[in-house]
Design a protein around this nucleic acid. Structure first.
Length: 870
RNA sequence: GGGCGCAUAGCUCAGCGGGAGAGCACUCGGUUUACACCCGAGCGGUCGCAGGUUCGAAUCCUGCUGCGCCCA
């Protein structure tokens, strides 16, 4: 046996960082826009500048890295472009908290100094996720790293804003928006999370006597801002009251009773209080009936209505208002706790307060239409396809998008207000208006407004750069299905709009969400979060990636547990040891595999299997079936290559001469293909092994394997499978008889030639731990193994008593199985409807099974009868 | 309230019209000079329940039950 330069064990922690830096330094991941190769582009969904790597990222990065590594090997000019977004609210929160530690607020610094401070924070603490990506092994083009607040990307934002503005797709309007009183900014619909919370439902009587009317509310304090009571116009109970007025309690204000068809007469009392300034439905009722809007809270949700509640927080005001109403005898009913849906700020969990305010909006109708059409037309394909329906549901029913945020960190809205209500939108190279009375809008744009431009702005848009020409449209957008609405739909809208209808990506791949071993969502409060960095430390990047890829079944979430990672680590170790063994035995790719005629059944079988594997992995990769392709690779590597071929190869190498040389070539070429097929998912270990096997520069830049083109040899396969069955049956018999696995047993085989396995006697002897019968050979037990070509009989000299009970048990078990099989087959064949209607090949197959089962029953019955009485 | 999805071995999941599968876990045996992060052998399921379609249903249809998700 030769030696190899490979260490005895694979220790990822010792080599990963150096390997990675080597790849980056060699420029393997740097894309060339002037290349003649076809492009393959993925833009990284930009993580927050405040973020750190979690398992969801690790999964998505594994997917993107696997896709891009394979395409690179397939000869594509691959661009995988990294970067981050500026995460307006989150980043501003972080820096404000830092300031608070110094006893300062952002207002103490002023806008300009505050923004400077945020940039300083970013320089020092931002983007630690980028280093974590390196640890995963991301084959990403670091030379093209982008940030949404960069100069170029900011120009893109300003450019599209102006374009949308001039096309009339951006407008300013006073409406009810979701307001976070803690962040003190507007939020879009999707930045609000709903949960069923315990609150209260209070029924309040407005008016007196015959004119009294009862309304119910979960937000009693808002009654201070009521400007009407609404009932259904056809509601007989209240019809006569429409057009009359009631006095609003606690305020003394007179408010009208209006008839509105949107009131549900079945719900509650059928009468609703109307607070146009603090509820979106009420706002619409207010519009229809020209009601005034009375704002009763400030930006912090503190009551501003004059009276005893002035200055109270909304949650203090609520019980105070109820108490005051109760004192007046106006509380008719109270339900507490009352479970109802409440919106929360997705950034800080504060209860959202609907608030009437002036904001900038995008009219999404034409954009969403185009975004839907691109998928309907098949220009962009969604994987898995079931999720396209969810995409359509969203884009086809999208509300206008509030894009202004009352923050300082972000792209400031490029609109200037001048004297006499003049409004000017300023484009990238235009000078803002100067002179008395001109001011810029103080607000910034939603972070998603700039993220939506990511697939084009990162490539240079609005400049027609060579990158944009070469790499747009991008090939695949990969992300979790929970981000479909946040990001994917918006990128589709802006990409199509800015690029004259050319879609931003050809494929959208949506992976599932990461869950714990019991399938529960990971969350800090549950304490079930697994930190990918911990796995990277303990199991290595390859094992972490393989675990994630192997769990990625289309459309479904994945459960993770440490045992899974351990299993993947074991797989990497197995691959390591198998490769080491192959190399110690002289496995090589320097010599071509000899002509098929020169090869053994085992050689032809494993070569056919690896061909099948290449086809299967290709199909699965093209269909984003990561779990299945990992399983296929795992199965081939462990169950076929290691458990069978390596063992058979030992026998062939022991033969020496040309046989041994041919075996070394087969060992090497099969290993070479497997390593290349595995490389996209487990890049590190495959790189080390492949370099050792081939002596070449790097697996990263080698070609993706293709099938050999040789015609498969089904006879070889049948014989190898026969050998496997024979060996397994002997091992099974040995285990039943309590023989030590290593103990060699003298045995005599007969019927081997008849079964067509004469070439395989040595393999059977070696793998079943048999030895040639000596002169004193006295068979004390025998077993029969029926194979397609004939039955092989194995006589064994156990040199001791045979465990007849175990023997009888084994035979009885086989008999029971055969009897069950026979009964099933005969039941079918005895049914004329089956023989008439079922396809002929199915009937023939069942007949074949019946015949085999019948023969087995006869054989086993005879064996049992022949057993000596125990 | 509207919509979608899932219920298969102890756990996590494949299979989606003709022989119930994988990984992990479990049991037994093991100093097989690649590997104990391993090797060999095994145990384990009326495929959620009830109907229907079909020669044939884990697989298609309907209803029920239980979980989960999205939207309002």
């Amino acid at each position: 046996m030769q030696t190899t330069d490979l260490p005895q064990a694979w220790e990822p922690a010792a080599v990963e960082a150096e390997l990675y830096q080597g790849w980056v330094d060699a420029g393997y991941f740097t894309a060339d826009a002037s290349s003649d190769k076809p492009p393959f582009t993925i833009v990284l969904p930009p993580p927050n500048v405040t973020g750190s790597l979690h398992m969801g990222h690790a999964l998505n990065h594994t997917v993107m890295d696997a896709l891009t590594r394979r395409k690179r090997m397939q000869g594509f000019e691959v661009l995988w472009l990294p970067g981050m977004d500026h995460a307006g609210i989150a980043t501003q929160n972080v820096v404000e908290r830092q300031l608070a530690g110094e006893g300062l607020s952002r207002h103490d610094l002023g806008r300009e100094k505050f923004v400077e401070r945020v940039w300083e924070w970013k320089a020092e603490y931002g983007g630690k996720i980028l280093d974590q990506m390196r640890r995963l092994g991301d084959g990403i083009d670091w030379t093209r790293e982008r940030f949404t607040m960069d100069e170029g990307l900011s120009r893109a934002v300003q450019t599209i804003f102006k374009k949308l503005f001039e096309d009339g797709l951006i407008y300013r309007a006073e409406r009810i928006i979701n307001w976070c009183p803690r962040c003190r900014t507007a939020l879009s619909d999707i930045e609000v999370d709903h949960s069923d919370d315990e609150g209260e439902l209070v029924s309040i009587r407005y008016g007196e006597g015959d004119n009294a009317i009862v309304v119910a509310t979960t937000r009693a304090e808002t009654m201070l801002g009521d400007t009407a009571v609404a009932v259904h116009p056809e509601d007989e109970r209240y019809k006569h009251l429409i057009g009359t007025y009631v006095v609003l309690p606690l305020t003394g204000r007179e408010i009208p009773i209006v008839g509105d068809e949107h009131v549900d007469p079945e719900f509650g009392t059928g009468a609703v209080k109307v607070t146009p300034a603090h509820d979106p439905n009420d706002f619409e009722i207010g519009q229809r009936h020209s009601l005034p809007s009375v704002t009763i809270m400030d930006e912090a949700a503190v009551i501003t209505a004059h009276g005893p509640f002035l200055g109270l927080d909304r949650f203090e005001a609520r019980p105070a208002v109820v108490a005051a109403l109760r004192a007046e005898g106006r509380i008719v009913a109270e339900k507490r706790p009352y479970l109802h849906s409440v919106g929360h700020c997705s950034r800080c969990d504060t209860v959202v307060e609907p608030r009437l305010s002036m904001q900038w909006w995008v009219n999404v109708q034409p954009l969403a239409q185009a975004a839907g059409d691109a998928v309907r037309d098949g220009r962009t394909e969604v994987h898995p396809p079931e999720l396209a329906k969810r995409y359509f549901d969203w884009v086809d029913n999208m509300h206008d998008w509030t894009i202004s945020r009352q923050l300082w960190w972000g792209h400031r809205i490029p609109v200037w207000y001048g004297p006499n209500d003049k409004v000017v939108c300023v484009g990238p190279d235009e000078e803002p208006p100067t002179g008395e009375g001109w001011t810029q809008d103080p607000d910034v744009l939603d972070t998603w407004f700039s993220s939506a431009l990511w697939p084009i702005s990162t490539l240079g848009w609005p400049v027609q750069t060579s990158d944009l020409a070469k790499f747009y449209p991008t090939s695949v957008l990969s992300t979790g299905y929970d981000i479909l609405f946040f990001w994917v739909a918006r990128m589709m809208m802006f990409g199509l709009y800015a690029m004259d209808g050319v879609q931003p990506f050809d494929h959208i791949y949506l992976h599932g969400l990461i869950r714990d071993a019991q399938g529960k969502k990971m969350s800090k409060s549950r304490g079930n979060v697994i930190d990918p960095l911990d796995w990277l430390d303990r199991f290595g990047a390859d094992a972490t990636r393989f675990t994630l890829a192997r769990g990625a079944n289309p459309g479904s979430d994945m459960a993770l547990a440490e045992e899974w990672a351990g299993g993947s680590r074991n797989f990497c170790t197995k691959l390591w040891n198998a490769s080491r063994f192959a190399l110690m035995n002289g496995a090589t790719t320097a010599v071509d595999v000899p002509d098929r005629a020169e090869l053994t059944d085992a050689d032809r079988w494993i070569l056919d299997e690896v061909d099948a594997l290449v086809s299967e992995v290709d199909t699965l990769f093209d269909d984003f079936q990561f779990a299945k392709l990992c399983d296929a690779l795992y199965h081939f590597t462990w169950d076929l290559y290691c458990d069978w071929y390596l063992e058979l190869a030992k026998v062939q190498i022991a033969e020496g001469g040309a046989r041994a040389d041919a075996t070394r070539a087969v060992l090497g070429h099969v290993l070479d293909k497997v390593l290349r097929l595995l490389h996209p998912v487990i890049p590190f270990v495959t790189e080390v092994l492949w370099k050792s096997l081939t002596g070449k520069e790097s697996i990263v830049i080698t070609d993706w394997p293709t099938t050999s083109g040789a015609a498969p040899d089904p006879d070889a396969t049948r014989r190898v499978e026969g050998v496997q069955k024979l060996i397994t049956e002997i091992r099974r018999f040995r285990a039943d008889q309590g023989l030590k696995p290593g103990q060699k047993v003298p045995a005599r085989l007969s019927g081997v030639d008849g079964a067509g396995l004469s070439a395989h006697a040595a393999a059977v002897t070696a793998l079943a731990r048999l030895e040639a019968p000596g002169e004193a050979f006295e068979p004390s037990a025998s077993l029969e193994v029926p194979l397609p070509g004939g039955t092989v009989t194995v006589e064994l000299d156990l040199s001791g008593t045979v465990d007849l009970a175990a023997e009888r048990k084994r035979l009885t078990k086989d008999l029971t199985a055969a009897e069950k099989e026979l009964a099933q087959c005969e039941a079918k064949l005895g049914n004329p409807k089956f023989t008439d209607k079922a396809p002929a090949d199915v009937v023939a197959k069942i007949q074949g099974r019946r015949d085999v089962a019948a023969a087995e029953i006869e054989r086993i019955t005879a064996r049992i009868a022949a057993l000596p009485a125990s």
